[in-house]
Design a protein around this nucleic acid. Structure first.
Lengths: 203, 203
DNA sequence: GTCTATATGTTGATAGAC
DNA sequence: GTCTATCAACATATAGAC
């Protein structure tokens, strides 16, 4: 698991992330991702982290808080991507292009966290919250696609909502097989995908 | 999938739901699909089916057998689609077109079963078996894409394996939102998707 | 901050009456 | 074929010593 420098003073604004909580979170995301949230017991997390079960409770309130923190690791950059300059200015089809590239990069960068996000079932309050955040994201992408259709750059024989869903169907499917390091670089992959997707949807 | 009571008329008194293995399976697939396999307890299945837990054990050996039967409902037609005449004769790009159309139809027809298949984590023997079947399917699709590249009909700047994965990334993402009846007809959807995908990957 | 030991509830599965 | 009652195993979480 990744280790982070511990004693550096961080810029104010966010509560100082605790080293132990962070590395525990990385382990938890990996195990949740592999076994599913429900299929993961505190015993599994204990073995994977090398901590006893009760020591884990020293760092986090419980299993569900680990889930929430891990999901935020995926949701924060994804939601932020919608507000980046490249995605908020210019022709809609170009903004869409940037968004696709950006989100492939985020997915590659935060793979276990995004994988977790995409596999969540609405069994707990935290899971339902995550699903709700995803829906909000999807809605905003659909709006962008609609704009691109209105501007005449994207085919209009398929409706915007469907097109938006298919686009992120492709992007999100990366979690099933993409492994940074082993496969193409994130930037190159992002180019290939954006190119294929746009060839498929353009007028 | 609706939890179908037996078609037979029941003896006098209350219309107690009677189940055979098939209708129980439909309920199980629905609940597994909604809550995840690990997140589903026999108690959940009991409530959803109207049977007591122990009555469920009269029909099936246990929870994992329900999973296996449900997964076969998805895997059988998917694997069979690879051997259909339209998919085994002619130019590779056309066979690919047929395969995409066919699998969108299968997905629409067996939605809860395919959804379950695509969400499985390798925690149990049955789950690992399903993952293995999926890998075999993917390999055969990748071969077909490679043929289409060799025949000059599909772009060669992205490798066959990646292209195959992206194609079924789109198709499989349907489980996230497609609902037969509410949305476009399966045939129409299959056309739209095949069209977009092929526009994206053709030379 | 870590551990062992344990409280308390839920799980998949079984026994046996009707 | 259905049910109620029950089990052993395992779940999340806590107590308290070091």
């Amino acid at each position: 698991m990744t280790s982070a420098p511990r004693s550096r003073t961080l810029p104010s604004g966010e509560p100082r992330p605790r080293y132990d909580q962070d590395s525990l979170l990385a382990v938890a995301a990996e195990v949740f991702t592999e076994r599913g949230y429900d299929g993961t017991s505190m015993e599994h997390l204990s073995r994977a982290s090398g901590l006893s079960k009760s020591s884990i409770y020293h760092h986090v309130e419980g299993k569900e808080q680990l889930l929430r923190l891990a999901l935020e690791r995926a949701l924060d950059p994804l939601l932020a991507s919608l507000n980046e300059p490249d995605v908020t200015t210019g022709r809609a089809v170009d903004r869409l292009h940037h968004l696709i590239r950006r989100d492939v990069e985020i997915l590659a960068d935060r793979l276990p966290y995004v994988t977790l996000l995409l596999r969540v079932h609405g069994n707990t309050e935290t899971e339902r919250w995550a699903l709700d955040q995803r829906r909000g994201f999807d809605r905003r992408v659909a709006k962008l696609v609609q704009q691109a259709i209105d501007e005449g750059d994207v085919r209009s024989d398929v409706d915007a909502r469907t097109t938006a869903r298919l686009i992120f169907g492709v992007v999100n499917s990366l979690i099933e097989w993409y492994r940074p390091g082993r496969d193409t670089s994130p930037a190159e992959l992002a180019d290939q995908i954006a190119s294929m997707v746009l060839d498929g949807i353009r007028t």
